[in-house]
Design a protein around this nucleic acid. Structure first.
Lengths: 273, 273
DNA sequence: CGAGGCCTTGATGCACCTCAACCGACGTGG
DNA sequence: CCACGTCGGTTGAGGTGCATCAAGGCCTCG
């Protein structure tokens, strides 16, 4: 087993070999770098009820779900929520924070497959083989609710509306992936960035934040990886949009000055859903 | 309502306005172009038991599923199985034939999101909004089993292993989409084509066909759309692989002469799943 | 036979990649 | 304290892989 060390400033990750029994994810007593903690929580009082898995459930059903989703875990910036190749047991609902998922190729390149914020569900890809197929890495200190998948399937039998909503969430993920495929397959750099920003904007808005003024949690390189571009191209596209006064960029801070012109930039293509 | 007319040779589609009651998909009495027929079928005797939804079910469970999946429909080459924007009611399991799914943009461009063969499930994207988000078009005369989704959810409660397998199928679709995103985001034209051919090869093999010798059902343009390339580039990539004696191409017919070198061409990247 | 669809191949241009230099922010160590 | 290294970001110069445009061949069908 390895202990993951995170340089808090640079966000770089190092490894240290440890005896096997120091399990990566389940030993919350380990001091220091992997500070994943388990805390009782309840869906009933969660502010994300309307965004997350409990959508459409009544109070009693939420209670049942809340009993299954009994653990909260914290992941520090740069830390792994799960790693590719590890056994799948639970889905994770993001309670706070911001994460990316990415697949790592043998040659070291990584492709970001998604950025994820509060209320979203992680781990759906792992249901198929019961092995995680991607890494989930926190881009800022985050909290997630752990949802043991077998238990979710069990209570899904008791609560059909939960099962139904779960199917919709999985399906929505497929639709989202299709729109990213469309983006990667047919859009130009500037269109891709516009589409990306509009997608972020909408998701921040849904969560009660400003849709025109936000901080990016990811680097240019991570954006590029997600959009199928090199970081220089992303940077140039940012500059171009700024020159045209459509957005204002200052490092990680983005303000959308003219959301309509940004939508026009995106072209006729439908946005990432 | 519109009646779809298909030029059988050119595979082009025209529209004719009809009174509303001539429903597109459910009027099998309409002569001519939309010859979708309904035939009783049963999962119990289907040769695709091991590939399709019934995987892992016992005889009694298969009987229950078979009663729900009571209709077969035929779609002629060039015909729609479903269209973007229409209401979602059923999933479709492909019994025979070959289909593509594609999203159409407002400006007329279309992006192929997948090619689908026997035993595969179509319509998963529509669960989320209960509206189809893409078109499914037959690339050769095809037969599908219609699975009313609400009924599937109902019997899923009785047959947990069915529900579980269904979740795995949805998850597998997500994994597949991620690997296409990786392909579109980071591979070169030749790598993309190699990955595509190897994917087809494996899927034909799983169905008992030759893994080195098969006919493509789609045009260069459709391949290009799927792979994020122009048809000329696809054609050139075919020629290049042929020059190097890795494959032999004759119009739609492909023979893989050296599957290992084809895998090397694909690079270190993992194949489309 | 002609028309149209599908495919191939060549010539040219351009969007993005690659390489490189440089900047500012930040943390570290002498 | 400042010099230095590292990282993330920006910008420029030049190269290239693919798109675009165009011509022509093969095949099928009417």
């Amino acid at each position: 087993m390895v202990l993951i060390q995170i340089n808090r400033r640079t966000n770089k990750i190092g490894f240290k070999t440890l005896p096997l029994e120091n399990s990566l994810l389940h030993d919350s007593s380990q001091p220091g770098h992997l500070d994943i903690k388990q805390i009782r929580s309840s869906c009933a009082t969660c502010s994300l009820r309307e965004l997350c898995l409990p959508v459409g459930l009544n109070d009693q059903e939420i209670q049942i779900l809340g009993d299954v989703v009994s653990h909260k875990r914290k992941v520090r910036r740069g830390g792994y929520l799960h790693q590719s190749g590890l056994k799948f047991q639970s889905l994770f609902a993001i309670r706070s924070g911001f994460l990316k998922t990415c697949v790592l190729e043998e040659d070291g390149r990584q492709q970001v497959t998604g950025f994820h914020m509060t209320g979203e569900l992680l781990g759906l890809d792992a249901i198929s083989t019961e092995i995680h197929t991607c890494d989930a890495i926190a881009l800022e200190d985050s909290e997630v609710c752990e949802i043991p998948f077998t238990k979710l399937e069990e209570i899904g039998i008791i609560i059909p509306s939960l099962m139904r909503h779960f199917h919709k969430i999985m399906s929505r993920e497929i639709v989202r992936d299709h729109s990213v495929m469309l983006l990667l397959g047919s859009m130009k750099a500037e269109e891709r960035l516009a589409s990306f920003l509009l997608n972020l904007s909408r998701r921040f808005f849904l969560r009660g934040y400003s849709e025109t003024d936000f901080n990016l949690r990811m680097t240019r390189e991570e954006i590029g990886s997600y959009l199928g571009l090199k970081l220089e191209t992303v940077s140039r596209a940012f500059s171009k949009l700024q020159e045209e006064n459509i957005i204002t960029v200052d490092h990680k801070h983005v303000r959308i000055n003219d959301i309509n012109r940004l939508k026009i930039k995106m072209g006729n293509s439908s946005c990432i859903t």
